[in-house]
């Protein structure tokens, strides 16, 4: 029962990987090579995207840490933001503008990738935070560790106080 439960929990890693890795591998290629947006414009978006990435992890981590609801503090975020995340993901691949409409596509890419990454952080960070908090039992920890390590980095905010440092 517990192993099955662990396996079911680890499906979240599949979700995070398929969404995250697809964007990492194909977003730039799709907008530059297929939709013909100039590389300069996409580089500019990626620069701000990097900065947004650095800010949103500690930000959403802090919000999650201070959240208290009767449905607890991690699960509501995963449950509530997974649907918007997947919609943002789908929208990234279906811009309402034709290839070559540089400015419109640039703005579309800018908005949708920021939205995607913000939602991705909310969902995956909270999903990942569940992992160390679930592991009171010693058995099966290794399995969960493998399932969760990929996105572990999302959870180091707020840790130093309780960690050994």
């Amino acid at each position: 029962m517990s192993k099955l439960r662990d396996f079911i929990y680890s499906l979240g890693s599949f979700s995070a990987s398929i969404l995250g890795q697809t964007v990492t591998t194909f977003a730039i290629y799709y907008y530059v090579d297929v939709l013909k947006v100039p590389t300069k414009m996409i580089s500019l978006v990626m620069l701000f995207y990097g900065i947004w990435n650095a800010i949103n992890d500690p930000l959403f981590g802090q919000i999650s840490d201070t959240t208290r609801t009767k449905w607890w503090r991690r699960i509501p975020y995963v449950a509530g933001f997974t649907l918007p995340l997947c919609i943002a993901f789908a929208l990234l691949w279906m811009p309402p503008y034709p290839a070559g409409a540089e400015k419109s596509l640039f703005i579309w890419y800018f908005i949708v990738i920021f939205l995607f990454d913000g939602l991705f952080t909310i969902v995956v960070l909270n999903w990942t935070a569940l992992f160390p908090e679930m592991s009171t039992r010693r058995q099966g920890t290794g399995f969960r560790l493998k399932a969760g390590t990929r996105y572990h980095r999302a959870d180091f905010r707020g840790r130093p106080a309780s960690g050994s440092g």
Binding site: L4, R5, D6, F7, I8, Y9, S10, L11, G12, S13, F14, S15, A16, I18, L19, T22, R74, I75, V78, A79, T82, L83, L85, C86, I87, F89, A90, V123, W127, L130, M134
Partner: peptide, 16 residues
């Protein structure tokens, strides 16, 4: 891919 991500993430909550 969006649907696949959606289904697996919601499914994982049953194990969480």
């Amino acid at each position: 891919f969006g649907v696949l991500g959606l289904v697996t993430m919601y499914a994982s909550l049953y194990g969480a």
